[in-house]
Design a protein around this nucleic acid. Sequence first.
DNA 1: ATTGCATATG
Length: 615
Amino acid sequence: MRRCTSLPSPCSLSEPRSSASIKTLLNLCKTLRTLEQIHAQIIQKGLEDDNSIVCSFVSLCNSLSVLRYATSVFHRVSNPSLVPLWNSILKGHCDHSSLALSLTLFSRMRLHPVAPDNYTLPALIKCCSHESAICVGKGIHGLTIKYGVVDEVAVGSSLIGLYGKCGKICHARNVFDEMSVKNEVSWNVMIVAYVNFGDMVEARRVFDIMPVRNVVSWNAMIDRYAKFGNLKNARKLFDEMPEKNVISYTSMIDGYAKRGDMASARFLFEHCQQRDVILWSALISGYTQNGLPNEAVKMFFEMKSTNVRPDEFIMVSLMSACSHIGHLQLAKWTDSYMNMSCFDLHNTHVAAALVDMNAKCGNMERAIRLFNNMPKRDLVSYCSMIQGLSVHGQGEKAVGLFYKMLSEGLTPDDVAFTVILTTCSRAGLVEEGYGLFDLMRKGYSIVPSPDHYACMVDLLGRSGQLKAAYDLIKSMPIEPHAGTWGALLGACKLHYDIEFGEIVAARLKELEPCNSGTYVLLSNIYAAANRWFDVSIFLGSFGSYILSSITTKWHWVSPFSLLDDYHASEDDDLELSSLYHATWIVPSIMHEVHAWWQASMEKEMATLEQITHGS
DNA sequence: ATTGCATATG
């Protein structure tokens, strides 16, 4: 049975209604359904032509975003002579339609003739700034002078907003200085104009001298400080701020997350009383982007348990976290949850994330089906598929898809080439890789990044051409990063080349003295050559360091990704093997480590079990 | 009789 939200039935409204009582009803109306009932009564009582009734009706339509309904009712008024009536229909157009249509209506209003006032013009100016229509905006600025409303606060404020939006910061400031009466909004628009212009110094100056600051003024400053990475200033204002709202917290959390400081982000999150989707989104996407996908997944389910409805943004973060974890069961759950909850699967970001998640979690059939059904396949979704095929050992198919992408006219960027070069080295497609490296430089004029060189070094190294790889590093026009040397060291390990390995490891120790990976790889080389003495000498002093780096890291490296050979990345293999090396060196703690590993794995299993079954 | 102008997420 449908719950009754409607007005009393017509039979109970026995007596003829005056326009005053219709107005009372309009004031009480909250839904489209009741609005329709009132409309019926307006027609019944023959009040369709009543300017003031239609005026209230139209403004109610505006707040319910039903512009067409408002327009149809407005058109039945034979002589719309009231300024407020024109204003309310015009406002509906300014807020929910285009500038062009709003202007058409505006010119009809002036021909009628009805003179615009201090309600009409700010609405139009706002519409201009929304579309960055500076010329039309200037024309309306002229009209505000003509009709003598240029000195109104709302007119001034909307003009500052317009000029600010269009980058005419001096015009904005002129309008601001000319205003004889300013309110909080005018000060805020001025601050926002400076802040969007990137002039934090001037914004701060205005902020400091404004007579009354409200939550918008504080948030505008905090958000921009945080966005520009000035977390110190942002936090200082945040702490000084008398009454923070959820937006203040969101800006701070987002700033910390972009900086990689998830501890501070989490700290503030715990202190925020009111948590909306956007706040959760800032935290969850922060965890995903900072390589803490398990934490993102946990927070997602915590959010769901508080009955906050996830939106598309959150789902994209969750799917990205799934891709990083590579947990098939969780991916399947997420996929079916998306379908059940009626998310828009045609949204480009959602569709791309779905393909990416399925491809990375090993459900290639599903990924391929989704990919083929995509309305528009862009670079990102192509790369997801290529990478999916690549990690599932189908390197040649991946390369084939890359060429298909080119034939569809998409232009690969540096990331796309990183993906395809990685694919080639993983699949041992040396010739292919070389060809693509050339194509990137000559065909698409992309200057190879250190990452690209690292891919090529990896490619040559894996195929056993250690010398060629070394020469490539030497020939690099830019400084190779540790990853490039690391790729070569990995190749030395693969081919058990001790002499080369020692040279490369020495170079790496200079570049990254604290990276346990170097020590682990070289110890692997020694170990493979049965040179246990060298292993122990080499690792002796680092054994405990490696162990601590492993144990601190393990609170986020999922045991699933470590254990599952199929999905394990290179790094995870490294961590696992370094554990065993470390326990060889320090046998006394072996039991302890083993117990710890067991416990942490069981804990993670239990959590994921709970997550995938409990919801 | 319209209640106008400002802030937040991939």
